[in-house]
Design a protein around this nucleic acid. Structure first.
Lengths: 105, 105
DNA sequence: TTCACACATTCAAAATTGTCAATATGTTTT
DNA sequence: AAAACATATTGACAATTTTGAATGTGTGAA
């Protein structure tokens, strides 16, 4: 499965789960402790940990450890990178060549 | 599974498959016939059709039927909507309230 | 009207993902 | 050192997604 798109897929998958979107929404108002996130979501602790790993591996979220606690926040760099990827995927190229009518003869 | 995030998830899932990313890349240079896409991808026709449905249902791609053929292209409106959704998900809110230290006492 | 073609749909199998219970790891408190 | 706590990891299972073979639908050509 290794491909040039792995990185892009990893980033966008971060936004493809309802609970992860809820988490991002909570983080939009600033850094939150994992236990705070857990309070508001109706999932178990191991499930939260799983989602935080996906968000962090995608670079969208960063964790800051402080004693027993971990504080999560949206990574500005990761957010910028995701936006850049989306722009790239959707930008229309100025194209000089032959485009249409592969089929009509 | 019905939730307020359904729409968002549907849009971002469009970008979470390697073949769909390849398809989008091909469409960046303009409208393409399904058969042209099929030529360049190493998947079966039914698999292509499945992916095109996901891209169209997400609003990212639009299809134009012409006789036996369907020409697909990136939808500028859909593309704009996806970018808007991502902005929303990642924008940091100016927040006046209490944020931190849910845990330390 | 019959045939060939382009694309969509259905079905079943394989792969991936989300979930929770149990357990492990590391930190603070007693 | 032991107990309590916050989070991560593992393992198992259910749900979802990707895929291709077979089939259906609509269109143009013979």
């Amino acid at each position: 499965m290794a491909s040039a798109y792995n990185d892009t897929v990893r980033v966008f998958k971060a936004f493809c789960d309802e609970n992860r979107l809820r988490i991002l929404e909570m983080l939009r108002t600033g850094e939150k402790c994992a236990c705070k996130l857990l309070d508001d979501l109706h999932i178990t602790q191991s499930t939260l940990s799983h989602h935080m790993k996906i968000l962090c591996d995608a670079g969208i979220v960063q964790g800051r450890k402080d004693g027993k606690w971990v504080y999560y926040s949206i990574s500005p760099e990761g957010a910028g990178y995701a936006k850049k990827l989306l722009e790239q995927q959707l930008s229309l190229e100025a194209f000089s060549g032959e485009n249409g009518s592969c089929c009509d003869r």
